[in-house]
């Protein structure tokens, strides 16, 4: 038996928003520790890794490990039926071929349940090695989203260049060239508005704009985003999810032919 209760179901709506542009379907692996998802986009260029710890939920029970293959378009249809303040309960029997979503209004006067068919997906788990990154940039997630949106008007690729002084995002194309430089913030009132850089050595890498823009669909999950970079390895874009865990996106760099 699997059962997870979430008082504010808006978190799951935001998670879904953060993954559905990259993935058509995904397997939610449920265990005693929580819910995990790892999936590559169809072109095998980026990977989404989601971790929601069981202790973040208001109630969580998972007697046996359960892998739920879910069509994300179907799940989106169901989650649209929930109010942001509804209490959500997800339930599945062991070895079930369906999962139930139950939404209760705060005053408990409206209760809806939706049963969704599960699908069989070929699971492809990737081992992600522990990496010491040369540069770790923390910045407001809204600022990162804005930069990716602005630069995508100029070219298909964004060059991210990180030094001790700051981080520079550049794009170039038919229109011309664009450069956005962010310096480390000296002092800010709010931690979430800070730009901080931990640098071992400077790094410059090129990435496809389209994917960075898809990652920014997670902006609503966290006020800050963390970018981890090392030469010739995938970029990690991480958004913390409150008391639950995180969503991480890995994106392979573009390299010279």
């Amino acid at each position: 038996m699997f059962e997870a209760r979430l008082v504010q179901c808006s978190m799951l709506k935001k998670v879904l928003e953060a993954i559905k542009e990259l993935l058509n379907e995904a397997t939610f692996d449920c265990s005693d520790a929580g819910i995990q998802l790892q999936a590559m986009d169809n072109s095998h260029v980026s990977l989404v890794s989601l971790n929601l710890r069981s202790d973040g939920f208001d109630k969580y029970r998972c007697d046996r490990n359960l892998s739920m293959g879910i069509n994300l378009a179907s799940m989106t249809k169901i989650m649209k039926c929930a109010g942001n303040d509804d209490v959500l309960t997800i339930k599945a029997q062991d070895n079930a071929d369906n999962v139930m979503f139950m939404f209760e209004s705060q005053n408990q006067e409206k209760v809806s349940d939706y049963d969704m068919k599960l699908i069989n997906l070929d699971q492809e788990h990737l081992g992600i090695p522990e990496t010491d990154y040369s540069c770790i940039i923390k910045m407001p997630s809204g600022e990162f989203a804005r930069i990716c949106r602005d630069l995508s008007q100029f070219g298909e690729s964004v060059v991210i260049s990180c030094t001790k002084e700051g981080v520079k995002f550049s794009a170039a194309g038919d229109v011309g060239a664009a450069n956005i430089k962010l310096a480390q913030t000296a002092n800010v009132d709010k931690e979430e508005e800070a730009v901080t850089i931990e640098m071992q050595e400077p790094v410059t890498l090129t990435f496809a704009c389209r994917y960075l823009n898809s990652f920014t669909k997670a902006t609503a999950l966290s006020p800050q985003v963390q970018l981890s970079m090392s030469a010739d390895v995938p970029l990690v874009v991480e958004y913390k999810i409150g008391d639950f865990g995180h969503i991480r996106y890995y994106l392979a760099p573009k390299i010279e032919e």
């Binding site: 095998h44 260029v45 980026s46 492809e124 788990h125 392979a252």
Partner: peptide, 14 residues
Amino acid sequence: ALRQCLLTGFFMNI
């Protein structure tokens, strides 16, 4: 010219 890398080259299938 730039070539887009694939992730599978960086991570191992387990």
